[in-house]
Design a binder for these strands. Structure first.
Lengths: 126, 126
DNA sequence: CGAGAAGTTCGACCGTCGTTGAACATTCGA
DNA sequence: TCGAATGTTCAACGACGGTCGAACTTCTCG
């Protein structure tokens, strides 16, 4: 665990983008987008408590969300202002697509990976 | 190696964002932004040939760049049109920050990681 | 042909990711 | 005070990511 909540100036694009490069976390952002706060439990259809805790930590350490405690609950919110200040347009661009991310739903439905075996150097265009 | 060049409809946000979640690759995008094409060699200050080849493959498989061959060279270009179509605003948002990404420059300058050891549960706000 | 330029691929290595289950912490109500 | 509710932490695991050096492929030019 590196950082608790980075300050606005500590936000780094690579970290933010890798934090968003996971469909579970993207789905979380999608759900936070038109709501002030959510408690962790309200993401339960995205995974187990442990998994959620893990992904929350990633989002928090990247600076995408704030976590507030109230009794035994954690209330999570998007750090919209700081993000818009440092990376204008980022949220606006990503949120619509994030809402459309299909729920990861377990490891089911692996569509028999095509595994298109190709010969060497054959991916070059032109 | 999964895909050679994904089609516009195959572009997936999580893959794109993880491809961008690396400072070397972000720097490459930054350099491609105001130029039609670059050959691989022109990124040489970002790393060795092997490393560049690896990162190029990532960017290509995520659908961010096109690679064209001409004799023994590879000419690389941003897939601007497709990206703007599927994720409007993404490039516009990311490119300015990508240009500002400091070059990874080896593993030098590790600033003696602060290693701020914190007690349990102490990262919660409020 | 042979040498060189420009990249790619391979195998190895090590570190980080994402998931799981079990144990722990904190708070509220009965 | 005991128990349930709500999360967090830990250790372990396999899979993937990024880097390196060595070997290879393709093409061009003497």
């Amino acid at each position: 665990m590196a950082i608790k909540h980075p300050t606005a100036e500590q936000l780094e694009l690579p970290s933010i983008l890798s934090a968003l490069g996971d469909s579970t976390r993207l789905a979380m952002i999608g759900r936070l987008a038109d709501v002030a706060e959510l408690s962790c439990g309200q993401f339960s259809e995205l995974g187990s408590k442990t998994v959620l805790s893990y992904h929350m930590a990633k989002l928090r350490e990247a600076g995408l969300i704030q976590v507030r405690a109230q009794s035994t609950r954690r209330f999570v919110s998007l750090r919209r202002a700081e993000l818009d200040e440092r990376f204008p347009g980022l949220l606006a661009t990503i949120v619509p697509a994030a809402k459309a991310v299909e729920t990861p739903r377990k490891v089911s439905e692996a569509p028999i990976t095509p595994l298109a075996r190709t010969d060497s150097y054959d991916w070059i265009v032109d």
